[in-house]
Amino acid sequence: METTYLNCLALFGVGGAHPGGLNLTRRVLSKEKINGDSKILDVGCGTGQTSAYIAKQYGCHVTALDNNRIMLEKAGKRFQSMNLPVEIQHGSAENLPFQNDTFDFILSESVTAFTDVTKTVPEYNRVLKANGVLLAIEMVRNTDVSENQMQEILDFYGVKQLLDEQEWRTHFEKAGFNHIEMEEVELHPDIHKIEVSNDYSLSTHIDPSFYEVFEKHHHLSIVYKDVLGCGVFRCSI
């Protein structure tokens, strides 16, 4: 298996790896009108921490989608152990395997930035109902960087682009979202250090090189602390 940041998250089974973790997710969701009839898509669900929380807290229909089968297997075990009827779906955010107008809410937690945004964001719009809401917790570039710095960030995280707030807004608008709000999330260096997470689902055999990925991630989060920010985007049609 290739030694990448995303594969590292999968092997360690990190839950709530996005900035702010589950606490931020709870706060974001608490502002929405979610009830038992709501249909929610958790894009890039990982090990299913957020999907499990939503299903348990709101008792609504939750679909957990991920393109990584290791993550999905760990999510499935979580749902089974908690006796939660979460629907599991393997698929890509760039080509969602759902019909038009399916979901009331889509939640993306540090997922969209790892995809081709020009494909993914229109897909969100397509599968959302007319009054649906997209909640995206995503990496935001706060300042300009040199070409070499940009390449270092893109190469390590495997993201296809590093967008600032206005660039994110432009993509949402082009995809047909008319109402876009953004809340900046205040970050501290330790919030990037995945080791502080207490939600793990470890694979049996993990090559030592993946531990080095954790260290590199923490190093970059400090070096680029003024560059790499996080925003919560709320988009509706």
Rank of each mutant, 00 (worst) to 15 (best):
D207F: 06
R26E: 13
C60T: 00
F172V: 10
G21T: 06
S51W: 03
D207T: 05
Q80W: 10
N7H: 07
N83I: 08
L24A: 01
E2A: 14
K174Q: 14
W168A: 11
Y53S: 15
T25E: 05
T112D: 04
W168L: 12
G21A: 05
Q89V: 13
E138Q: 00
S197V: 05
K193P: 02
E215Q: 08
N198I: 15
D226S: 07
S30D: 13
G16C: 03
P208G: 12
G132H: 10
G13N: 05
Y224L: 02
K129L: 07
E73R: 14
N100I: 00
P189C: 05
K39P: 01
R126V: 02
G48H: 06
F214M: 12
K225I: 13
N67S: 13
V159F: 13
D116I: 06
K193Q: 04
T170H: 10
A10P: 03
T118V: 14
N95T: 09
S209G: 09
S30L: 10
L65K: 10
E173V: 12
S209P: 08
V227K: 03
L6G: 05
H188Y: 13
V185H: 01
Q161M: 13
T63C: 12
D226E: 12
R26H: 08
N100M: 00
G16M: 00
D190W: 11
F114G: 02
V232M: 00
D66G: 09
L11I: 12
I34T: 15
K74W: 00
F98L: 12
S203W: 10
M71W: 11
L228T: 03
